[in-house]
Design a protein around this nucleic acid. Structure first.
Length: 306
DNA sequence: AATCGGCGCAACCGCTATTCT
DNA sequence: AAGAATAGCGGTTGCGCCGAT
């Protein structure tokens, strides 16, 4: 059996905190210290859920909080950290003393995002926006862009993913469709610049949920996953060739090849047609092979944190 | 003076990982 | 080991403030 509930939800207050509630919480924590949020509300005489108390303390009442405007230095630091860490607000907050993740998140959404947009920088990717008209055709609203596909007049296509998406499967399909649409028989090289946040395999119940809901999008479902920002360097390989399971490229004729989708662990090998060419010992018994970690489909000596 | 809309912030919600019984 | 709760995180929402009309 599990624990007993932390509070009686029916008898808890919600909404804005009163001065009296703040005082009670501050007084209790001064006397007993932080932690044990489960028992805190009752012990402190608060009709609040422990979770609510924790948030109020961390985000507002903590004495070491630095209130007031963010400085230019803090702005730049946040931007730099965000480019490195993405929306990992708690990690970013950990590097700015006196600032909370909630505060930084709010500040990002209300100020820095706009600031970057004014500079012509995509806040999601930290890359300049609208470098190529073909990219904007694909995503009219820059803020909601899923990916940028920049097709040059030469034989090189640069594809960069700019946002975490609900499903990589969808994303990959868009890349493939876009590539098909643009190359039109031309012998084109896909230069994958994976400045992306890669989510591990998508859970169907999340997908169903989000598709049935009109709002959002959003998705803590995808965001909750680790989303490493990686770059895959393939400039020194023959880029026409598919990935081989040992991480190197091989000719199509050699047999053991997997598709891009499977190399990301998006499809189970059973689901994907490329499975037929795979060696069973590497794949089917274990299901997903996220980023090809088991098969070595991606050579992650060439993966590096941005 | 009243109303409207945009903005900022605090708080809530939903989720995952961890902890506890 | 299993199941239930907590802790913590990121996304979203709701409300109050403030300036414009």
């Amino acid at each position: 059996m599990g624990r007993s509930p932390c509070c009686e939800k029916a008898h808890t207050n919600k909404g804005a905190w009163t001065k009296e509630e703040d005082d009670r919480l501050i007084g209790y924590i001064r006397a007993h210290g932080e932690g044990c949020w489960r028992s805190l509300p009752k012990a402190a005489g608060l009709l609040r859920c422990g979770k609510s108390c924790r948030l109020r303390w961390i985000n507002y009442l903590r004495p070491d909080l630095k209130r007031g405007n963010f400085t230019e230095d803090e702005d730049e630091l946040i931007i730099k950290l965000h480019s490195l860490l993405g929306n990992k607000w708690s990690l970013i907050a950990g590097r700015l003393s006196g600032r909370t993740d909630n505060e930084i998140k709010n500040y990002w959404n209300t100020n820095i995002r706009r600031k970057l947009l004014n500079r012509g920088i995509d806040p999601a990717t930290h890359q300049p926006m609208n470098q190529n008209p073909s990219a904007t055709n694909n995503n009219n609203d820059n803020n909601n862009s899923v990916l940028d596909v920049a097709v040059t007049t030469t034989t090189t296509t640069t594809i960069s993913f700019s946002k975490a998406t609900p499903t990589i499967h969808y994303l990959v399909k868009e890349v493939e469709d876009e590539a098909k649409h643009n190359i039109d028989g031309e012998n084109i090289i896909l230069d994958l610049n994976l400045e992306l946040r890669i989510s591990p395999p998508h859970h169907h119940h999340h997908q169903n949920k989000s598709s049935s809901s009109s709002s959002s999008s959003s998705s803590s479902s995808s965001s909750s996953y680790m989303q490493p920002i990686v770059q895959y360097h393939n400039h020194h390989h023959d880029q026409h060739q598919p990935l081989k399971t040992d991480g190197r490229r091989s000719s199509v004729a050699s047999g053991t090849t997997i598709c891009f989708t499977c190399s990301l662990g998006v499809e189970t090998n059973k689901q994907c047609s490329c499975a037929s060419s795979l060696n069973d010992t590497n794949s089917s018994s274990t299901g997903y092979d996220f980023l090809g970690l088991k098969t070595g489909a991606l050579d992650y000596r060439s993966l590096e944190m941005k």
